[in-house]
Design a protein around this nucleic acid. Structure first.
Lengths: 221, 221
DNA sequence: TTTTGTTTTTGATCTAGGTCAAAGAAAGAA
DNA sequence: TTCTTTCTTTGACCTAGATCAAAAACAAAA
């Protein structure tokens, strides 16, 4: 139980809460293990609570009638997901699947709402989490509708540079096919764009490692 | 002041709060009038508070370097906007402009955060508002990336049928060019799709009124 | 290693829908 | 009304990127 509240304390959601609150929160969390590729929930399932990633990676996605998928988010350690039904209406708006073996904490809706009601700083943290997510969605809509695929890839690479705090290279943490689905394109097109950017001397692709040769050129796209 | 808290009471955000709270909320709201086409804020401006539409219509949108615009939301009476910076970081993630003459209430950040902290049910209402908005964004991303333009138009028409509670016809509340920008396409393409759907006997276009001839056929798209 | 399954790349082809230009229709303003 | 200004439609053309098919490269397991 010690380790559990330690992880919780590092997340944006439970950040800054006093130890006393943290242990109450830890008390209602149920740990669950999922193998790689497991379904956590489907779009339309009733949302009886939300999850927090302890370790591993989870994708949230929509699928079209003909099987194409669009990834909305990829969440890693410390990030919560599936909160929408907790605060507004019942069914999950999208599907959730693990991208690797994963350990998750599940927070049942009613208990959690009680905690939020009793703990103003938890409520403000949750508001911050949702506000950040809205900001990310706005950026994703901008990318999908106002930028072409090279521009979307460029902004994703800049995002990874930021996240991994490197100016010279980044490592893709998901297969290229999944990246294509996140950027709203096909694996074939993404592969061609990687090729084009290499030709143009912007990057060098070495498997999952992308060497950034021209950070400024990347801005342009 | 009486009228003000009456309007507030009808909004999802302040719904169900006791009169005492409502008057406190009304006390910090500052009324402002904007003419049609006025800019309320730009992307990147510091967010010192949020707004609620008393009457009129407001669009929230992103623009590309070459001037194309993508509308993220259109808000009418009773709907709040610009809350993201209140709860997470400072700058507005998008632009806001009036689509008609509009009366807005402005809520300064600090005072409002104090109220939220002191009023659990207000916090839960705000969480519901943001959760609903996430759900809408997820649907918009799905539309942009998994559906073609006819499908997007069809789901917008179904949305209007729902909203206006009519099965036989709906009235567009914005110009067709703005609708194109909301659906992530151009005015020309939208016009052609309206034409095609009319040919196919799905709808009949009479100016801003769209007569729904075949609700089931509309489902298909 | 060799085998088998999964990613990734490459080639060839096709089309939805963007863009440019201009004409028509509506809607306000004078 | 008549004049402007803003919306909407139509025509002609063009390209980003999807799709299909198949080879190649990797990775995991036997």
């Amino acid at each position: 139980m010690q380790k559990k509240s330690e992880l919780l304390a590092t997340s944006l959601l439970f950040n800054g809460l006093p130890a006393e609150q943290l242990s109450k929160i830890a008390a209602i969390a149920v740990g669950k293990h999922y193998p790689k590729g497991a379904t956590i929930f489907h779009e339309g399932d009733p949302g009886i609570g939300f999850y927090l990633v302890a370790n591993g990676k989870v994708k949230i996605f929509k699928t079209s009638f003909d099987g194409k998928e669009q990834i909305l988010h990829i969440f890693g350690a410390g990030e919560p997901f599936g909160e929408v039904p907790v605060f507004y209406g019942s069914p999950f708006p999208a599907n959730a699947t693990t991208l690797s073996d994963a350990e998750l904490y599940f927070f049942p809706r009613n208990e959690f709402v009680d905690l939020v009601t009793a703990t103003p700083s938890l409520a403000l943290n949750m508001l911050a989490v949702l506000a950040l997510r809205l900001r990310r969605f706005a950026a994703q809509i901008e990318n999908l509708s106002l930028k072409e695929v090279p521009g979307r890839l460029a902004s994703h690479l800049r995002y990874l540079m930021e996240e991994q705090k490197r100016r010279d290279k980044v490592v893709l943490d998901i297969p290229k096919g999944q990246l294509a689905s996140l950027l709203g394109t096909s694996a074939e097109t993404l592969s061609r764009i990687f090729g084009k950017m290499s030709e143009d001397g912007l990057i060098r692709v070495e498997g999952k490692t992308i060497v950034i040769l021209d950070p400024n050129g990347l801005q342009e796209h």
